[in-house]
């Protein structure tokens, strides 16, 4: 039933999805890298990012892409505050403490959203929501192309900041060895707050981009959380480049697996990949890459 054109079409769609997956997982990877904390409230900030974008759209007819940029600053501030007021107090305790704290935060965010916006499905329809482009015989949904381009741009900018600025280098140094970073004079406490702010800003940013593709409710974000977690495990937890590869692996596996199995088992793929990665290569693709090089 599947022609070469169909298969190429599936591969293109998967790669476009991978861009979105990467941008929504980066925040989680940065926070884990610096603090070794799994930010389960990420799903709540994704959802909040989507609802804020809806507000901008309703108030000022602001396009979701502009909404994504607008979200960066307030979400950075929110993340900074969450770190200073909550996470900092438990970050050195057992991992279960931060996990429970951030899970509770997610529930609070969800319920606040429910109180404000209700449980109805919301969506943003722009002039280009249902438009598509035909390139080389392949039909490409315009929204997916835009999301991919914006995600790529954001990730390139992030790579530049992490690689070429003092703050970025300090952040990477803290990820690699917090003790050594402290010894060379890096304020790791400040870097942790910055990482939490940056991670949350990326969640708000990704939440805005998601509104171009999906409808949403206060429950929105949960399924994406699982995908993000799978991606950072596949990528090697602390490896930023690995996140991009992990996102591509998940998107391609999901898309091609549906050709051979029931689509109702789509989530099994993410769970299955997570289990395989944790057992076979706990260091993710970064470990695999290192092994190959050595």
């Amino acid at each position: 039933m599947f022609t070469t054109q169909n298969l190429v079409s599936v591969a293109i769609a998967a790669l476009l999805t991978a861009g979105l997956y990467a941008v929504m997982s980066y925040g989680l990877a940065i926070i884990y890298g610096v603090m070794k904390v799994i930010n389960v409230s990420n799903a709540g900030f994704l959802m909040l990012g989507a609802f804020m974008t809806l507000m901008y759209f309703q108030w000022w007819h602001l396009d979701p892409v502009a909404g994504a940029v607008l979200n960066l600053l307030p979400f950075f501030g929110a993340g900074w505050l969450v770190y200073k007021l909550l996470v900092r107090r438990v970050v050195s305790a057992r991992p279960i403490a931060t996990l429970l704290l951030l899970f509770a935060l997610w529930l609070v965010i969800q319920n606040v959203a429910l109180a404000i916006w209700g449980s109805d499905d919301q969506s943003i329809i722009t002039a280009y929501t249902y438009k598509s482009l035909i390139v080389g015989g392949f039909r490409l949904p315009l929204t997916r192309l835009i999301v991919f381009a914006v995600a790529l741009l954001a990730l390139s900018l992030l790579h530049f900041v992490l690689g070429h600025t003092y703050v970025g280098k300090a952040l990477r140094a803290t990820v690699q060895d917090p003790q050594a970073a402290l010894l060379v004079g890096i304020d790791t406490e400040r870097i942790s707050a910055l990482a939490f702010g940056l991670g949350t800003a990326l969640s708000g940013f990704a939440g805005s981009l998601l509104t171009l593709l999906f409808s949403f409710t206060p429950d929105f974000g949960g399924p994406f959380q699982l995908k993000s977690f799978t991606i950072i495990v596949l990528g090697g937890l602390e490896n930023f480049a690995g996140v991009t590869v992990g996102a591509a692996v998940l998107a391609l596996t999901e898309s091609f697996a549906v050709l051979f199995m029931r689509a109702s088992l789509q989530n099994v793929i993410a769970y299955g990949l997570l289990v395989v990665a944790l057992i076979v290569m706990p260091g993710g693709v970064a470990q695999l890459w290192a092994r190959t090089r050595s």
């Binding site: 039933m1 999906f214 898309s255 549906v258 689509a263 789509q266």
Partner: peptide, 17 residues
């Protein structure tokens, strides 16, 4: 497909094909 799914694009690729 799974009830309350988050993304149906791989399924819709099959519909298209």
């Amino acid at each position: 497909f799974q009830l309350n799914g988050s993304d149906f694009s791989p399924l819709l690729q099959q519909v298209q094909a």
